[in-house]
């Protein structure tokens, strides 16, 4: 079942963050296009998760197997805010925000709800600075849409991810268990 919790957000907002689209050069010298998800991106996105190495799964996502991947992506694509990183015609990174609410269709104002964040970068494109830029552009995209509260959970032994989230302004919140909860307030 889905459990909703009350959550603490930082008093001070973070930002401003750059809004997509943008083309960046990663640390390997590759041109990477960062843009909101467009029509026609569904299949390349499925392909990203089919190619994703399960060793980097966290807390059960992304699922493995094309069928389960499609089922998992359905509400993310229908109700979420999505930004992708593309290289050579392929989607190589995906950052998403999903509304933390029972009935996403009933949300008129994105400020009414908190949004859960997740980000995945294909293994061959990790450690090249893409994740940070993708994350910043997702938050810029979110700000443009009027979203002001974003949260996430991260496995608490995943120090590099926690450091990345802290760099952009996320703060640790909530009780510690296997996962660490973090939140950010946007301008």
């Amino acid at each position: 079942m889905v459990r909703r919790r009350t959550r603490v957000y930082p008093d001070d907002p973070s930002g401003p963050f750059p809004a997509p689209p943008a083309t960046i050069t990663d640390r390997e010298g590759r041109p990477i296009e960062i843009r909101p998800l467009a029509d026609g991106d569904r299949e390349p996105l499925v392909d990203l998760y089919v190619r994703f190495d399960p060793v980097d799964r966290a807390q059960g996502i992304p699922p493995t197997g094309e069928e389960r991947i499609r089922t998992w992506l359905e509400p993310i694509l229908a109700d979420g805010k999505n930004v992708v990183a593309c290289h050579d015609g392929a989607v190589v990174g995906h950052a998403t925000l999903v509304p933390d609410v029972e009935d996403p269709a009933a949300v008129d104002d994105p400020r009414e709800v908190a949004w859960e964040l997740a980000i995945f970068v294909l293994q061959a494109y990790q450690r090249a600075g893409i994740g940070t830029r993708l994350l910043e552009h997702l938050l810029g995209h979110a700000g443009e849409q009027g979203i002001d509260r974003v949260w996430l959970t991260v496995e608490r032994w995943n120090a590099p991810a926690i450091a990345l989230y802290e760099r952009v302004g996320f703060e640790v919140c909530g009780a510690e268990s296997f996962e660490q909860e973090m939140s950010i307030r946007l301008e």
Partner: peptide, 12 residues
């Protein structure tokens, strides 16, 4: 429990 994103969470 499962988060809206589908992440499995184990409590304290």
């Amino acid at each position: 429990t499962q988060s809206p994103m589908g992440k499995i969470r184990l409590g304290p």
